[in-house]
Design a protein around this nucleic acid. Structure first.
Lengths: 232, 232
DNA sequence: GCAAAAGTGTTGTAGTTACACCCATGC
DNA sequence: GCATGGGTGTAACTACAACACTTTTGC
């Protein structure tokens, strides 16, 4: 173990937690994963997935560890959102929390794992009130997700291997809480040349059928798929 | 003192610091404030302004306290940037740092206070290497500042009461590390209607003289001065 | 008059929006 | 044959970039 030059400042040490806003897409709905809190205070109330960090890991690793523990999920997409530190934000004591949002693909396997822990997927409009400042964390995560979604097509982390453009648009409709014009959305997305059309069609949503698409493999070192060229 | 439900998790407690990337504008240059570190390890080397947080305050309050202590500055504009937590980022021990950037108006009073503490203003291109991951923090702060600057005119926090458009453009040139077209920049900024032209001219930079401008008072509850209307 | 920065005008391009319209197919 | 989502085309609008041009004034 490394020597710690700062041990004289012991009394400054803090509780540091991570909280994850977990987004998933199921039954054409953007959903959010919430848990019933396992410890006091507010035991039993709805809360985000969270846990303590420890000093041998980064907060991102802690977030991954916590997600793995509670949901069985691995290799999720994480992005740091914000750090909350109001000493009164948690009635149990002064706790700093580093917030992440996660994007995951919901499949049967994950669904089962999640059920084991008293967790539940809620759509954004049906979300119950959450403990502490977690409602604010959700709002912040959404803002960050919107920002990210305007720089790159985020469906890659939420959708199954093959999907229709209507489904992708549906995600964007829900993230931005508005209706995108189907024609314009299609042209915009296809102009970015990050999707590849498959020969197969999805016949379940319309008579005509809609072509499936998949993401082209992401090139190494390639930064992202900018949706808007404009900058200052 | 409030009771702490979490005391049983003592061994999870962490060192949490704040670091501030302080931007100022002086002699037509965007500058960054760095200090010579006062404690081991890396004592005497250049570092960002930073300090410990304690559990009675938020990290933002800690940042304000630290800035006040080292620079005498009060009422600065702060924005949280990112939280760094790699357990090996600080050779002195596992320390989480919450990063903020600050925008300040440099005047003679602040200059004097700052000199007292072995601090120094550097332009971006002359910045010496900083300790630990602080070079990365600077890069992150710049990115965040660029983002903010494309949503609202940030000069309000950096410039004196009255200023010319050339000076404002000069700030943008340096933040984005490119030359903005003087005519286009002028039209863009004035179209936002957040500036008010004064009758007085600055005759020091040209024969013709350039009108001084000032920011209109910010309306209460008004969010910001968007520079780009476009969204997805 | 000339240099130099301040300030205005003009034109082309490209991203975006709104919306009309055709397509394919199961009923 | 018609309703429905899938998919294409087009015209108007607007932000932006490039750049020409005019203004002012000290030297």
């Amino acid at each position: 173990m490394q020597t710690n030059t700062y041990e004289q400042y012991q009394e400054n040490k803090r509780f540091v937690a991570v909280d994850c806003v977990v987004f998933g897409y199921e039954d054409d709905k953007l959903k959010l994963l919430v848990f019933q809190r396992a410890i006091e205070p507010a035991k039993g109330e709805w809360s985000l997935v969270g846990g303590w960090t420890n000093k041998e890991e980064s907060t991102e690793d802690a977030a991954r560890r916590v997600l793995q523990k509670w949901t069985g999920l691995q290799d999720v997409y994480l992005e740091q959102v914000h750090t909350f530190s109001d000493p009164n934000r948690d009635p149990g004591g002064s706790v700093i929390t580093v917030e992440y949002y996660a994007l995951i693909k919901i499949d049967d396997k994950t669904s089962n794992l999640i059920k084991d822990y008293g967790a539940k997927w809620y759509t954004l409009d049906e979300l119950p009130p959450l403990i502490f400042d977690h409602d604010i964390l959700v709002e912040k995560a959404l803002e960050k997700l919107r920002l990210r979604s305007s720089y790159e097509i985020i469906g890659r982390k939420l959708l199954p291997e093959k999907f229709t453009l209507t489904r992708l648009r549906n995600i964007y409709d829900q993230i931005f809480m508005r209706k995108f014009d189907p024609g314009n959305f299609r042209k915009k997305i296809l102009s970015l040349k990050v999707l590849e059309r498959l020969e197969e069609k999805d016949m379940s949503e319309s008579r005509k059928g809609a072509f499936y698409f998949k993401f082209k493999p992401k090139k190494e070192g390639e930064f992202s798929d900018p949706i808007f060229k404009r900058s200052i």
